[in-house]
Amino acid sequence: MGLLDRLDNPFETGGIILGTLEDVLNWGRSKSDWYLHFGLACCAIEFMSMNASHFDFMRFGIIPRATPRQADFIMITGTVTLKMAERIKVLWEQMAEPKYCISVGSCANSGGPYWQYGYHVLKGVDRIIPVHVYVPGCPPRPEAMEEGMMKLQSLIDQQAIFRKRQRIAEEEALLKNKI
Protein backbone atom coordinates (compact mmCIF):
# COMPACT_ATOMS: atom_id res chain seq x y z
CA MET A 1 0.00 0.00 0.00
CA GLY A 2 2.44 2.58 -1.21
CA LEU A 3 3.52 5.11 1.40
CA LEU A 4 2.72 3.31 4.65
CA ASP A 5 4.54 0.14 3.60
CA ARG A 6 7.63 2.06 2.78
CA LEU A 7 7.53 3.70 6.22
CA ASP A 8 8.13 0.32 7.85
CA ASN A 9 11.44 -0.10 6.03
CA PRO A 10 12.79 3.43 5.83
CA PHE A 11 16.37 2.47 5.01
CA GLU A 12 15.68 0.36 1.96
CA THR A 13 15.88 1.83 -1.49
CA GLY A 14 13.22 4.41 -1.96
CA GLY A 15 12.34 4.42 1.72
CA ILE A 16 11.11 7.55 3.37
CA ILE A 17 11.32 9.05 6.83
CA LEU A 18 8.57 11.29 8.14
CA GLY A 19 9.51 14.33 10.18
CA THR A 20 9.15 18.06 10.42
CA LEU A 21 11.30 20.52 8.52
CA GLU A 22 12.19 22.05 11.87
CA ASP A 23 13.70 18.77 13.03
CA VAL A 24 15.80 18.49 9.90
CA LEU A 25 17.05 22.05 10.17
CA ASN A 26 17.81 21.69 13.86
CA TRP A 27 19.57 18.40 13.23
CA GLY A 28 21.78 20.12 10.70
CA ARG A 29 22.37 23.12 12.92
CA SER A 30 23.28 21.16 16.00
CA LYS A 31 25.76 19.00 14.13
CA SER A 32 27.65 21.80 12.42
CA ASP A 33 28.26 24.42 15.06
CA TRP A 34 31.11 26.80 14.54
CA TYR A 35 32.51 28.33 17.64
CA LEU A 36 34.38 31.40 18.69
CA HIS A 37 36.88 30.19 21.20
CA PHE A 38 37.65 32.59 23.98
CA GLY A 39 40.48 31.13 26.07
CA LEU A 40 41.29 33.15 29.16
CA ALA A 41 43.02 30.92 31.70
CA CYS A 42 43.88 27.33 32.58
CA CYS A 43 40.55 26.06 31.21
CA ALA A 44 41.88 27.05 27.80
CA ILE A 45 44.85 24.73 28.35
CA GLU A 46 42.37 21.93 28.97
CA PHE A 47 40.51 23.04 25.89
CA MET A 48 43.68 22.62 23.81
CA SER A 49 43.74 18.93 24.66
CA MET A 50 40.03 18.88 23.87
CA ASN A 51 40.85 20.10 20.37
CA ALA A 52 43.79 17.75 19.93
CA SER A 53 43.53 14.30 18.42
CA HIS A 54 42.88 12.33 21.60
CA PHE A 55 39.52 13.92 22.41
CA ASP A 56 38.98 15.38 18.95
CA PHE A 57 36.40 18.10 19.45
CA MET A 58 35.80 18.38 15.71
CA ARG A 59 33.96 15.07 15.59
CA PHE A 60 30.98 17.06 16.90
CA GLY A 61 31.02 18.89 13.58
CA ILE A 62 32.68 21.84 15.19
CA ILE A 63 35.09 24.23 13.52
CA PRO A 64 36.95 26.96 15.39
CA ARG A 65 36.47 30.44 13.99
CA ALA A 66 38.62 33.47 14.65
CA THR A 67 35.82 35.97 14.19
CA PRO A 68 32.48 36.38 15.96
CA ARG A 69 30.73 37.05 12.63
CA GLN A 70 31.05 33.41 11.57
CA ALA A 71 30.48 31.83 14.96
CA ASP A 72 27.36 30.06 16.19
CA PHE A 73 28.43 29.82 19.78
CA ILE A 74 31.09 31.18 22.06
CA MET A 75 33.05 29.20 24.62
CA ILE A 76 34.17 31.28 27.58
CA THR A 77 36.99 29.23 29.06
CA GLY A 78 38.59 30.84 32.06
CA THR A 79 38.64 33.76 34.46
CA VAL A 80 36.74 36.76 33.15
CA THR A 81 38.28 39.96 34.45
CA LEU A 82 36.29 43.18 34.46
CA LYS A 83 38.63 44.58 31.82
CA MET A 84 37.90 41.60 29.55
CA ALA A 85 34.17 41.55 30.38
CA GLU A 86 33.50 44.55 28.19
CA ARG A 87 35.34 42.94 25.27
CA ILE A 88 33.30 39.76 25.69
CA LYS A 89 30.12 41.79 25.63
CA VAL A 90 31.16 43.44 22.36
CA LEU A 91 32.07 40.05 20.81
CA TRP A 92 28.74 38.60 21.87
CA GLU A 93 26.89 41.50 20.31
CA GLN A 94 28.84 41.01 17.07
CA MET A 95 27.77 37.38 16.75
CA ALA A 96 24.89 36.63 14.40
CA GLU A 97 21.64 35.12 15.71
CA PRO A 98 20.97 32.36 16.61
CA LYS A 99 23.85 32.32 19.06
CA TYR A 100 24.73 30.34 22.14
CA CYS A 101 27.20 30.50 24.97
CA ILE A 102 28.99 27.77 26.91
CA SER A 103 30.60 28.86 30.14
CA VAL A 104 33.46 26.51 31.01
CA GLY A 105 34.98 26.25 34.48
CA SER A 106 34.25 27.65 37.91
CA CYS A 107 35.68 31.08 37.14
CA ALA A 108 33.43 31.73 34.17
CA ASN A 109 30.47 30.21 36.03
CA SER A 110 30.70 32.10 39.30
CA GLY A 111 34.10 33.69 39.84
CA GLY A 112 35.63 30.47 41.13
CA PRO A 113 38.43 30.88 43.67
CA TYR A 114 38.30 34.65 43.16
CA TRP A 115 34.75 34.98 44.44
CA GLN A 116 35.71 36.82 47.64
CA TYR A 117 38.86 38.88 47.14
CA GLY A 118 38.87 39.08 43.36
CA TYR A 119 38.33 42.81 43.08
CA HIS A 120 38.96 42.63 39.33
CA VAL A 121 37.12 39.38 38.51
CA LEU A 122 33.64 39.19 37.08
CA LYS A 123 31.68 36.82 39.34
CA GLY A 124 30.11 34.79 36.58
CA VAL A 125 29.97 35.55 32.88
CA ASP A 126 26.16 35.32 33.07
CA ARG A 127 26.20 38.84 34.52
CA ILE A 128 26.97 40.27 31.09
CA ILE A 129 25.81 37.72 28.50
CA PRO A 130 23.20 34.92 28.57
CA VAL A 131 24.70 31.49 29.20
CA HIS A 132 23.07 28.34 27.80
CA VAL A 133 25.30 25.62 29.22
CA TYR A 134 27.47 25.69 32.33
CA VAL A 135 30.36 23.22 32.58
CA PRO A 136 31.56 22.91 36.20
CA GLY A 137 35.11 22.02 37.19
CA CYS A 138 38.38 23.74 38.00
CA PRO A 139 39.41 23.17 35.28
CA PRO A 140 36.89 20.69 33.81
CA ARG A 141 38.17 17.54 32.18
CA PRO A 142 37.72 17.34 28.41
CA GLU A 143 35.01 14.75 29.02
CA ALA A 144 33.03 17.38 30.91
CA MET A 145 33.36 19.76 27.98
CA GLU A 146 32.12 17.03 25.65
CA GLU A 147 29.12 16.61 27.93
CA GLY A 148 28.53 20.35 27.77
CA MET A 149 28.71 20.24 24.00
CA MET A 150 26.19 17.41 23.87
CA LYS A 151 23.89 19.40 26.16
CA LEU A 152 24.09 22.33 23.79
CA GLN A 153 23.35 20.05 20.83
CA SER A 154 20.25 18.65 22.49
CA LEU A 155 19.19 22.20 23.32
CA ILE A 156 19.52 23.24 19.68
CA ASP A 157 17.69 20.08 18.61
CA GLN A 158 14.60 21.13 20.54
CA GLN A 159 14.55 24.73 19.41
CA ALA A 160 11.59 26.27 17.68
CA ILE A 161 12.26 27.97 14.38
CA PHE A 162 8.88 28.43 12.73
CA ARG A 163 6.67 28.49 15.79
CA LYS A 164 9.01 30.88 17.51
CA ARG A 165 6.56 33.62 18.40
CA GLN A 166 3.95 31.18 19.58
CA ARG A 167 6.53 29.29 21.63
CA ILE A 168 7.89 32.49 23.17
CA ALA A 169 4.37 33.59 24.13
CA GLU A 170 3.79 30.22 25.78
CA GLU A 171 7.06 30.43 27.68
CA GLU A 172 6.28 33.94 28.85
CA ALA A 173 2.88 32.84 30.09
CA LEU A 174 4.59 30.00 31.97
CA LEU A 175 7.08 32.37 33.55
CA LYS A 176 4.32 34.72 34.63
CA ASN A 177 2.50 31.87 36.34
CA LYS A 178 5.70 30.90 38.15
CA ILE A 179 6.29 34.39 39.47
Binding site: L82, K83, A85, E86, S110, G111, W115, Q116, Y119, H120, L122, K123, R127, I128
Partner: peptide, 28 residues
Protein backbone atom coordinates in the same frame (compact mmCIF):
# COMPACT_ATOMS: atom_id res chain seq x y z
CA UNK B 1 47.26 45.62 34.48
CA UNK B 2 44.03 47.31 35.48
CA UNK B 3 41.91 49.43 33.14
CA UNK B 4 43.08 53.03 32.81
CA UNK B 5 39.94 54.41 34.45
CA UNK B 6 40.21 52.21 37.55
CA UNK B 7 39.95 53.99 40.89
CA UNK B 8 42.26 53.19 43.78
CA UNK B 9 45.20 50.86 44.20
CA UNK B 10 43.96 47.35 45.05
CA UNK B 11 46.92 45.80 46.88
CA UNK B 12 46.81 48.43 49.61
CA UNK B 13 45.40 47.08 52.85
CA UNK B 14 42.78 49.83 53.15
CA UNK B 15 41.42 49.23 49.63
CA UNK B 16 37.69 48.70 49.30
CA UNK B 17 36.50 46.85 46.23
CA UNK B 18 34.05 48.86 44.11
CA UNK B 19 30.32 48.10 44.08
CA UNK B 20 30.04 48.47 40.32
CA UNK B 21 32.38 48.87 37.38
CA UNK B 22 30.86 50.37 34.21
CA UNK B 23 27.45 49.19 35.36
CA UNK B 24 28.59 45.63 36.15
CA UNK B 25 28.10 44.55 39.76
CA UNK B 26 31.43 43.50 41.25
CA UNK B 27 30.80 41.78 44.65
CA UNK B 28 29.77 38.14 44.62
Amino acid sequence: LLPYDWEGHPLRKDYKEPETYHGIRVPY
